[in-house]
Amino acid sequence: MPRLVLIRHAKSSWDDPRAEDHARVLNDRGREAAPRIGRWLAERGFVPDEVLCSDAVRTRETWQLIAGEFEVAPEPKLLGGLYLAGRQKMLEVLRQATGETVAMLGHNPGIGDFAGWMAAEAPAHPKFGSYPSAATAVLEFEEDWAEVRPGTGRVLDFVVPKDLAG
């Protein structure tokens, strides 16, 4: 059954007021949190075989740090269309996926909205609604990606960095 791993980029830096949003990098907290998410995914067997990633610097950096925790990690497909994308655009992109376990890295409010829209039922976790930095949900679907519909994903797990020991 196809699995979708929805990851919001880790905490980004606002230190450079001249940097455009697309070029923002992770801050120290984000660089520490992303590998924890990678270890969590690896421990649970949720390692993706396809990665659909916004082409923003902070999402690419988040993926690199997560991927560093896997024995084998796919190269991400960097997609400008996922930069600040809404849920409809994310669904269009997902319907083109070919992997069995697909990770999508994006930005809020889109990624959190998409997670809630795709889930048949939200998890009990209090942070699911706000989808903070590096929040990660894993959903499972019965239909192929080309046929996937909102409200049909069974949430297998959801985590935020604060849930994980350093």
Rank of each mutant, 00 (worst) to 15 (best):
P150D: 09
P35T: 10
M1T: 15
N108D: 13
A134H: 05
P17I: 10
L105W: 02
V155K: 03
I37D: 01
R60I: 15
L84F: 08
T62A: 06
T62P: 03
W63N: 11
E61N: 05
G110Q: 03
D163R: 08
L105G: 13
V102K: 02
R154D: 12
A103I: 12
F128Y: 11
Q96E: 15
A103C: 14
A122Y: 12
G45N: 02
T62S: 07
L78K: 12
R60V: 15
P123C: 04
L6T: 06
V102T: 12
Y83Q: 09
F70M: 06
A135D: 01
F114T: 13
P150C: 11
A119G: 06
A67Q: 03
G45Q: 05
G99M: 01
D55M: 03
I111T: 04
L26R: 09
E142Y: 08
W145A: 12
L4H: 05
T136A: 04
R58K: 09
P123D: 07
E20S: 13
V102D: 06
G80M: 10
R31S: 07
Q96V: 12
P123I: 06
G45D: 03
E140H: 03
G151C: 13
W63V: 14
M118C: 10
R44V: 06
T152A: 10
M1L: 11
M1D: 10
G151K: 07
E69V: 11
A146L: 12
T101W: 04
T136L: 00
E43Y: 02
L156F: 02
P126L: 08
L84D: 12
E121W: 07
P17Y: 05
M118P: 09
H9P: 09
L65D: 02
R8A: 06
T136I: 07
L79W: 04
D163W: 03
V160L: 05
K162G: 14
K127C: 15
G153D: 09
H9R: 10
I111C: 00
K11N: 13
V160D: 01
R8V: 10
G106N: 08
G116M: 03
D28P: 13
E75D: 14
V72P: 00
R60L: 13
D113M: 12
R44F: 05
V57D: 07
W14S: 09
D163G: 07
L79F: 05
G112M: 04
G129H: 13
F70W: 14
G112D: 05
C53Y: 01
R60G: 14
A19M: 11
H107Y: 06
W117P: 00
A122F: 00
H9K: 10
E75V: 14
W145R: 12
I7Q: 07
S12C: 10
F128M: 11
D113I: 14
A56M: 01
S133V: 13
A19D: 09
V5C: 09
A137H: 01
V47D: 04
V51S: 01
A135Q: 06
S133Q: 13
Q96I: 00
R149I: 10
L105E: 04
A103E: 06
G81A: 15
M104K: 04
D144F: 00
A85Q: 01
E143C: 05
A42P: 04
V160T: 02
M118W: 03
V51A: 04
R154I: 12
T136C: 12
E140P: 14
V25K: 14
L91I: 11
L84E: 10
W117K: 06
A56K: 02
K127L: 15
D157M: 09
M1W: 06
Y83E: 05
